[in-house]
């Protein structure tokens, strides 16, 4: 494959314009899923083709691009997507959240607060929050159009009646500007409150051919009941590397006896804290 044979950021200009129109429509109707003619990309559907197309349509030669998967810059899929844009768009890339102008993510929102000069692009596998309650696209689109969201609360009701609490821990549905119920992509519910931010948030679902968006400072409310309010909880531990007590943690199994420790899922955040002199309490295998 000769990279020169392809346009800047892989997609041809007409396709990018088509995607930009969908993005603008999405920004104009926050939370509404805009159908778009998703293209076959050179990576499989389900591996971030929606996010990649949105990034391709968003990137300019001056942008600084960061890709994370599970919060980390070094996971294989993040590496693969970063390399793809290095190759096809020749943009500068970074792992530093604060230095990036466009951040593509799978499953996390960075711990550092994003600014109004940044764009966060989410990879979305199933954009339809009602999908597992109603499998038909024709029906779910009607439910959105008519604001028929009773069924969504039935699901939460069932959770509480069965488990005593809402048993949804990621891809926790939100209501945008009191209108559309939206799937925030499979981020942990810990990240939901961060969605009211000053950066632009764009969501791309390639296989399902949908783009949606949140303009800066959009009202995003996680669905709940008055007497069972939304709870963005996390594991009750500190990061063993940097000691952070406010970050989302990955659990790492460290020996055959099931000993485990917790570390920041956002690797850039963790590394910066270590550079700033923070330390965590390293747990030795046998003590865990």
């Amino acid at each position: 494959m000769s990279e020169q044979a392809y346009n800047f950021a892989y997609l041809d200009e007409q396709t990018k314009r088509m995607i930009r129109r969908a993005i603008l429509k999405g920004l104009a109707i926050p939370g509404y899923q805009v159908p778009f003619a998703s293209r076959e990309m050179p990576m499989p559907y389900g591996w971030g083709t929606g996010g990649v197309q949105v990034s391709a349509a968003t990137l300019t030669p001056d942008d600084v691009f960061k890709v994370i998967d599970q919060g980390a810059d070094d996971t294989t899929n993040a590496v693969s997507i970063r390399k793809f844009f290095e190759k096809t768009a020749d943009v500068k890339t970074t792992t530093n959240t604060k230095a990036a102008s466009v951040i593509q993510t799978r499953h996390r929102i960075p711990e550092d607060e994003l600014g109004d000069d940044q764009i966060l692009v989410y990879q979305v596998p199933i954009p339809e929050p009602l999908r597992f309650l109603e499998p038909r696209e024709t029906e779910t689109r009607k439910m959105h159009a008519l604001e028929e969201y009773g069924l969504m609360h039935v699901k939460l009701y069932e959770d509480i009646s069965k488990n005593g609490r809402i048993a949804t821990s990621y891809a926790y549905p939100v209501k945008v500007e009191d209108r559309y119920v939206m799937d925030p992509s499979p981020i942990p519910k810990f990240d939901n409150p961060k969605m009211e931010m000053s950066a632009i948030q764009l969501f791309g679902a390639g296989r399902e051919q949908r783009i949606y968006a949140l303009p800066p400072y959009t009202k995003v409310v996680s669905l709940d009941f008055e007497d069972h309010p939304f709870d963005p909880s996390r594991a009750p531990h500190c990061c063993s590397i940097c000691g952070a007590s406010d970050s989302y943690l990955d659990e790492v199994i460290i020996n055959d006896d099931g000993g485990r420790m917790f570390v920041c899922s956002d690797t850039d955040y963790c590394e910066r804290r270590v550079a700033e002199g923070h330390t965590g309490v390293q747990v030795s295998g046998d003590a865990a």
Binding site: Q70, P186, Y248, D250
Partner: peptide, 9 residues
């Protein structure tokens, strides 16, 4: 693909 974050939650 990794789903650590979802699985952790």
């Amino acid at each position: 693909l990794p789903h650590y974050v979802d699985f952790q939650a």
